[in-house]
């Protein structure tokens, strides 16, 4: 296959970016999207040009490091038959001769570092605000001390599969980080271990979410539509319910 790529190039956070067009030849349909970028970068390097910077690590769809907007959808979800991360999108999803637009996540809370690389440390700070159970090492009771009903355990798990890639923010028209925040809220809210800190947790995590400059949620659903791990959209409603309930609690007053 031969592909025309239009890629966002931006030297650093302070400089202006622009779309640059490249031709990539001899692309195999078994290649992953990132391997196609590797191929282009090898070519650029030999020519003495700066290769395109993009984040990636595990290349098996679990670390959450990779993520670019492809043809207008995060992780190229619009081109993929199934939920996917960028590294698990394969070139067989494109046709020979296609023109593909590649852009970084765009959100105020995710400033561009270089080319397709953005700074997602705001997500870490949301977790720091309360996305944990306060249990010091060594102080845990026996694992069977608390039984957790299967349905709740499964719902906790569905939410816990979030990989923190940021696609939800990139796709959201409001650039809200609500699906990410809601995934953690729901994960811990479903488990007995998460109950003691439940009300304070949501107050603090949401305050940090807002302070980091993410937008509010308008229940449109773009986030869940691109989520590579299919975090349920209803986790956001869970977050809302918990927040409203917490307004009537004294925690964190």
């Amino acid at each position: 296959m031969n592909i025309t790529l239009r890629v966002w190039r931006q030297a650093n956070a302070a400089s202006e970016g622009r779309m640059v067009t490249y031709q990539v030849q001899d692309v195999s349909e078994d290649m992953s999207f990132l391997e196609m970028l590797d191929l282009l970068n090898e070519d650029l390097t030999v020519k003495g040009e700066e290769p395109i910077a993009f984040d990636h690590d595990c290349r098996e769809g679990i670390c959450g490091m990779c993520g670019v907007v492809i043809n207008g959808t995060a992780h190229g979800r619009g081109n993929s038959p199934v939920a996917t991360t960028t590294c698990q999108l394969h070139m067989r999803s494109f046709s020979d001769g296609a023109t593909i637009d590649v852009e970084p996540w765009r959100a105020g809370a995710f400033p561009v570092i270089k080319d397709l690389v953005v700074d997602r440390s705001a997500f870490d700070r949301i977790i720091q605000a309360g996305g944990y159970v306060s249990v010091n090492t060594g102080s845990a009771p026996d694992a069977h001390a608390n039984a957790v009903g299967k349905l709740k355990a499964d719902r906790a798990f569905d939410a816990a599969t979030c990989i923190g890639c940021g696609a939800c923010v990139a796709a959201c028209p409001n650039h809200s980080g609500m699906l990410f925040t809601a995934a953690k809220i729901t994960h811990l809210a479903m488990l007995p271990q998460g109950q003691p800190e439940r009300h304070l947790r949501i107050k603090k995590m949401l305050a940090t979410h807002d302070a980091e400059g993410f937008g509010g949620c308008t229940n449109i659903g773009e986030c869940a539509a691109v989520c590579p791990k299919e975090i349920p959209f209803d986790t956001i409603s869970q977050l809302n319910r918990d927040l409203i309930a917490s307004l009537f609690k004294r925690d964190g007053k």
Binding site: W8, G72, D101, E222
Partner: peptide, 22 residues
Amino acid sequence: LWRRAKLASPATYEAKRRLAQT
């Protein structure tokens, strides 16, 4: 909330495609 959303998105995509929005 509109103002917040504006502040949250300083740049728009060159290629834009929505999958879920009505």
